[in-house]
Amino acid sequence: MYNITEVTISLTAGFMTGSSALISWGVDSIVEANSAAFMIWQLNGEAKGINERDKRKRKKIALGVLSGAFTIAVLFICYEAISKFISQETASMSWWGIGILLVSLVVNPMLAWGKYRYGKKTDSATLKYDAIDTMICEYQTIVVLIGVGLVQWQGWWWADPVAALLIVPYVAWEAYESGRDAWQVQIDEEDNDE
């Protein structure tokens, strides 16, 4: 539920103020929300006791969809930031945008801690990985907050698209890793327990 609120506020504030950094952060949050949904779908299947082939199939689908979503996010963020560099458009102030960033600074560490703790308790590598991913989002939040702050308090119009572009390497790496992992999942490999 928090992710939906984060996405809604950051994208609305980003489009209203022309902030590439907020829009990019919101787009990345959409992908993160999808990641969480697919993780729940995958874990739910495991909890219901689906067979190994179906587990691998779910994993392959989830990773493939995430790779595609991350790739689209990279293209969108690059387009948005480069457009701002060309137009040299300055983002206006958004207390809503700054507010959601500040809330995320507090919420993300708590979410990461909960995911990691539950992942350790259930021996779920997926949950532990997602906890690390949430902490990486914390660093992105700090970068975007600095970018938005520099625009507003120093008048550096270029800080906003630079902050957006600083998100790209992480998102591109996630696109590559999830795509590579999806490719490596062999759905029809023989099960040891059959």
Rank of each mutant, 00 (worst) to 15 (best):
T5A: 14
T8E: 11
I9P: 06
S10Q: 03
S10H: 03
L11D: 04
L11G: 02
T12H: 10
F15Q: 05
M16H: 08
M16G: 01
S20M: 07
S24A: 14
G26N: 03
V27I: 15
S29E: 05
S29M: 10
A33L: 15
Q42P: 07
L43Q: 11
K48P: 00
K48T: 08
G49P: 04
D54V: 11
K55M: 12
K59M: 13
I61H: 08
A62D: 07
L63H: 01
G64Q: 10
A69L: 15
A73D: 06
L75N: 01
I77Y: 05
Y79K: 04
Y79M: 08
I82C: 01
K84Q: 07
F85I: 02
F85D: 00
Q88S: 05
E89Y: 08
A91C: 11
G97N: 03
I98T: 09
G99E: 02
I100T: 01
V103E: 06
S104A: 10
V106F: 12
Y116A: 06
Y116V: 10
Y118D: 15
Y118Q: 14
G119Y: 11
D123T: 00
A125V: 12
L127P: 00
K128F: 11
A131E: 10
A131T: 06
I132T: 06
I132S: 12
T134Y: 10
C137D: 09
I142Q: 03
V143D: 04
L145P: 01
I146M: 12
I146F: 14
I146W: 10
G147C: 08
V148R: 00
V151P: 00
Q152N: 07
W153I: 05
G155V: 10
G155H: 08
W158I: 07
W158A: 04
A163T: 00
L165E: 02
Y170F: 14
Y170W: 15
V171R: 06
A172V: 01
Y176R: 02
G179V: 13
R180W: 11
D181V: 13
Q184P: 00
D188T: 08
E190L: 14
